[in-house]
Amino acid sequence: MNPILECRNLNKHFQGTIALQNINLQVPRGRIVGLLGPNGSGKTTLIKLANGLLQPSAGQILIDGMAPGIETKRIVSYLPERTYLSEWMTVRQVIDFFADFYADFNRDKAYDMLTRLGLQSTARLKTLSKGTKEKVQLILVMSREAQLYLLDEPIGGVDPAARDYILHTIIGNYNPNATVIISTHLISDIENVLDDVIFISRGEIVLQSNVDDIRETQGKTVDALFREVFRC
């Protein structure tokens, strides 16, 4: 079986600045992976390339062996950095919208998660707080039966209790055939739920490792290793 995500000599530059340089990467299925790097290291660029929102300058990025396109969008569930849902819609309407748009959307799962959160499906998005809106968006993304979930900074703007909720949602939806890639710089909050980490710095992969291997060989937390690797 193809790795769910693969990069072969992937390069991306924007008018002279290099965003990603010679990325070679294979991410297998059934993993929860942290894509970790300081601000401006290329995390979002990599995720946008995987979604076909950007085109590689050189090299290839493959999802289940295919270049990003209609076929890969069927199996990739993407949580962007910013919300893009229409403010005037109610929670129920955005669920209908997602169910209409994605064949793999599981409506029951979405309503189940909303109920646990105590959210009314009749509420309009504009009446929700920023953190609640982020949770709704995560519920939408995790309610798809996708093979690759790309979550760009899912825990950035929410309080610690909401962070736990989000991490529980990710664990609770674990599927051995699907991989979840979470980009963040809040490492200590998520490191216990990760299988693997990818460290990215100035557009290059500096480390790809199993997290328990890091703890075993280095005797330190992933957070501590990160601070060491990326010391300013």
Binding site: R31, G172, Y174, N192, D212
Partner: peptide, 14 residues
């Protein structure tokens, strides 16, 4: 496994 993992807030593979 899933429930135990959720309870301990760890990865199900772990």
């Amino acid at each position: 496994v899933r429930d135990m993992a959720a309870d301990a807030s760890v990865n199900p593979n772990t």
